[in-house]
């Protein structure tokens, strides 16, 4: 399920960075600011919005295909950002919302307000600094996987109806037959995820709809998909911290 419009609420340094990184992913990137003066910005096309309910009934709102959109709540004032998130959720139940919070405390409030994903700035920055210092190698490897600097990928593969793993016990499968692939975890239909060596996963019988999380090179992942008769899968609703 891919989205084609990114709605960015707020105009600041964070939004500029987000635009830089996501503009290639979406057909349309719309920026909304609470400040009317931002509308004259020479570089970006910025629209005005306010936090009242009236805004949702304006022409701008009607132009947006909400079903194919994703919202980023990036207002600098935490209270306003929470209010914006709750307003968006109240009006659009299905709209995926990513919000930015200064601290974990505010992140919890944003989640309660209906955000699907919250990035707590201080904690995230601190995590990255700590990882850089304490686990420099794993940090580099994971960073390269994440930011596509390496050919290694992490993929999610759904067990299809015709997969020959169906109805097999997870622990009975010899994964070494699939060179180049490491299976990290299995995600059940109810979205609960289990590490491959957990005691629950050990006894798990693979069913249709289960999702395997694998690490490997792109070619090996494709090869693996072909061999087991399943395909890659992306589910937005898995989002949760």
């Amino acid at each position: 399920m891919s989205k084609n419009t990114a709605l960015l609420f707020g105009f600041n340094k964070y939004v500029e960075e987000i635009v830089k990184n996501v503009q290639d992913e979406y057909a349309q990137v719309k920026i909304f600011s609470l400040n009317k003066e931002d509308m004259d910005h020479p570089e970006y096309e910025i629209e005005y919005f306010d936090l009242s309910d009236d805004w949702h009934n304006t022409d701008t709102d009607k132009d947006i295909d909400i079903k194919n959109s994703i919202a980023f709540c990036v207002l600098e004032d935490t209270a306003e950002n929470i209010f914006l998130t709750i307003s968006l959720r109240a009006h659009y139940e299905e709209l995926p919302i990513i919000a930015i919070a200064s601290h974990k405390e505010n992140a919890n409030k944003l989640l309660m307000a209906g955000a699907n994903k919250v990035i707590p700035l201080v904690e995230t920055t601190a995590d990255i600094i700590t990882n850089m210092l304490e686990s420099p190698i794993s940090n580099t490897i994971l960073h390269d996987i994440l930011y596509e600097k390496s050919d290694l990928k992490i993929a999610q593969i759904e067990i299809g109806e015709n997969s020959h793993f169906k109805d097999e016990e997870l622990s009975s499968i010899d994964w070494s037959h699939y060179h180049g692939i490491i299976v990290l975890s299995v995600m059940h239909k109810d979205m609960s995820s289990e590490f491959i060596y957990s005691s629950k996963a050990k006894r798990h019988i693979i069913q249709e709809g289960d999702v395997l999380v694998v690490v490997g090179y792109e070619t090996d992942i494709v090869d693996f998909e072909t061999k087991i008769g399943s395909e890659r899968y992306v589910n937005w609703s898995h989002w949760s911290w």
Binding site: K3, Y14, E17, I18, K20, N21, V22, E25, I70, F72, I98, I100, K117, I119, L121, T124, T125, I128, I145, L146, Y147, E148, K153, I154, A155, Q156, V213, V234, W236, H238, W239
Partner: peptide, 16 residues
């Protein structure tokens, strides 16, 4: 910059 990169990965490679 981290926020920008995280957002990109969040929407591009949610699983990873």
């Amino acid at each position: 910059e981290l926020v920008g990169l995280i957002t990109k990965e969040l929407i591009g490679q949610p699983v990873a």
